[in-house]
Design a protein around this nucleic acid. Structure first.
Lengths: 151, 151
DNA sequence: ATTAGAATTAGAATGATTCTAATCATAGTG
DNA sequence: CACTATGATTAGAATCATTCTAATTCTAAT
């Protein structure tokens, strides 16, 4: 679990709690924190609607627009990752380690898979000299071990 | 270029031209063939709208719905591939070789990259025993060599 | 010729996401 | 402590790609 550490340089009075992550400075309002907390305690890659449902148990008045705003904010500041599977609804995850997603086409579940230590994309796909890689999005589709076992 | 070979077992009278691809039997109507031809002669991963524009020069009355139908048909029969980049519009390509996509975030271009001969996904991401992989969708985002050179 | 089964069509419907405009809250300033 | 600028939040409208619907047309096999 990636729990960014609390910053003390700016006094955190009222809503102005901040997290220092990857060098950037993120202002965490109560809603943003709730959205982040929901995600940090989820391993199922929820959609914006899923997150809305879960956050509602603490903040019944939160709106879908706010959830989208929070997710956008958290994503652009590197606190969470947006996950895409084909053209389905965006999903989100708080696992910031380099990883890919396995999608079971039978039960629909999405699980993280972490690369071997020596994994280097440029080594396996010959990009022209000078190509700069900033981001990889890798989705593997198939049947998970549980569904395979069920035959 | 992958040009599936014409089949002669069923006499191809009128519209009933067929292509034998990967063991399945695909009926190619004129629209389907035009969509396929447009795609086979494109290397820029056009969207459904791009394809509509290009096919219109030959069939001015073709509709977007038909383009979508044709693309769907060709995709499910394995003649073309649907490409997803984040949640953007679906793109299509006729390159059936195992490959991934590089997306330049500066100029927007999408290029194919082919894996090294010894590439094996299961080797780099530790999936649980029994996991079956049927499909991989890999997108690498960054800056292409042209845009990098332009500084 | 007739018929059954597809293909094609225009336009409506859907569904995820983004935008808009208004309201509210906070932090910093005098 | 008021005041103000900035940003957060909201409901609902708008957008956009895609899918669906229902009607029409085409084709291939009787």
């Amino acid at each position: 679990m990636n729990s960014p550490t609390m910053r003390s340089s700016t006094k955190p009075t009222g809503l102005d709690c901040r997290l220092a992550v990857l060098g950037s400075d993120v202002r965490l309002t109560p809603h943003r924190r709730e959205v982040f907390d929901v995600l940090a305690s989820s391993t199922d890659h929820p959609t914006a609607y899923d997150i809305l449902d879960r956050v509602k148990s603490r903040s019944p008045h939160i709106s879908l627009a706010t959830v989208y705003n929070c997710l956008e904010h958290l994503t652009t500041h590197g606190l969470i990752k947006q996950v895409h599977l084909d053209r389905g609804q965006s999903r989100y995850c708080a696992n910031l380690h380099e990883h890919i997603h396995f999608h079971c086409e039978t039960c629909g579940k999405v699980i993280d898979a972490h690369p071997a230590a020596d994994f280097d994309p440029a080594k396996f796909w010959n990009f022209p000299k000078g190509t700069k890689v900033t981001r990889m999005e890798i989705a593997i589709h198939g049947t998970c071990e549980t569904c395979t076992a069920k035959h």
